[in-house]
Simulated scan of single mutants.
Amino acid sequence: MDPINPLGERGIDVLVCGAVCSLLPEPDTLRTEGRPPCTVVLDHGDDVLFTQAAMASHNPAAGRIVVHPTVASGDRLLWHDILRALGARPQVAQATREEQEHAVHAALQAAPPCRLTVLRAHRIRVALWADLVHLHRTTRADLVLVHHAELPDGLAHLLRHCDHRIIDTLASVQKLHSLPTVSGQA
């Protein structure tokens, strides 16, 4: 891959800019070589079947980890929830958000390839989405973010600057999570 800027950089994790711009990076510069893009599941109607399909696929021994985040403000508990889903027992009272994020990176770098699905992504701030995309790019975890609402402008803008794919039908979610499609539902 040729450098993408005068500094000689060959790729970017996520490009976040303040103003909406019409100049977008070439898709190849956003791609992590040898990796699929992040998957964003758009559950426009907050359909319980989307959540059930994801939850049914949870099998850490098979490399399928599903996180149903604790409802709370701040990012610290999401990292805690991911650590617990990975089988770690984080010390919530002592660990800072940064320490927990670092522990998640270390755990996923040491783990075999896996798929990490995060439900309720509509409750996650854009900055944390960017951190999760970085997690996808720097570990062997394939990231699936299930967003149970329409995409807000800020998140849509972020996604224009990172390698991702969007799926928004129940049949696609069931296929992603290796569950048989229920006839008549899509």
Rank of each mutant, 00 (worst) to 15 (best):
M1C: 13
R31I: 14
R89N: 04
R31V: 14
P36H: 14
T51P: 00
H102Y: 10
R140W: 10
D47L: 03
W129P: 07
A121G: 00
I12C: 08
V92N: 02
T169P: 02
T39I: 08
L132Q: 10
A107C: 11
H161S: 05
R35M: 09
L23F: 08
F50L: 01
L170C: 00
R140V: 12
P36R: 07
H105D: 13
H148L: 14
P90F: 15
A186L: 12
V14S: 08
T70K: 07
R10A: 11
S57R: 03
H148K: 04
I65R: 02
D131Y: 10
P60I: 15
A53M: 04
A54I: 02
L49A: 09
P6Q: 05
P3D: 10
R84W: 02
G87S: 07
S183G: 11
D28Y: 14
P27W: 08
R10P: 04
N5K: 06
A103P: 03
H102V: 11
G34P: 09
Q100R: 11
R97Q: 15
V20I: 06
E99K: 01
V66K: 04
R160N: 03
Q91L: 13
K175H: 05
E150P: 06
H177N: 00
R120I: 10
Q52S: 08
V16F: 13
S73P: 05
D43M: 10
I124G: 06
L179P: 03
W129M: 01
C38M: 15
R97H: 10
R10E: 06
V118L: 06
D131I: 09
M1W: 07
H161N: 15
L155Y: 05
T138K: 11
G154V: 08
H164M: 06
L128H: 11
A141P: 07
E26M: 12
G8E: 01
L132W: 13
H80Y: 01
C17H: 03
S73Q: 10
G11I: 05
S178T: 00
A141W: 11
V14K: 03
H122A: 11
L78H: 10
D81V: 10
H136D: 00
A93P: 00
V67C: 01
D142G: 07
R31W: 12
A88S: 02
A130S: 14
D153L: 08
H105R: 15
A106G: 07
C162F: 07
L49E: 12
R125Q: 12
L158N: 02
T29K: 10
V14D: 00
A62V: 05
I124A: 04
S178V: 02
G34R: 07
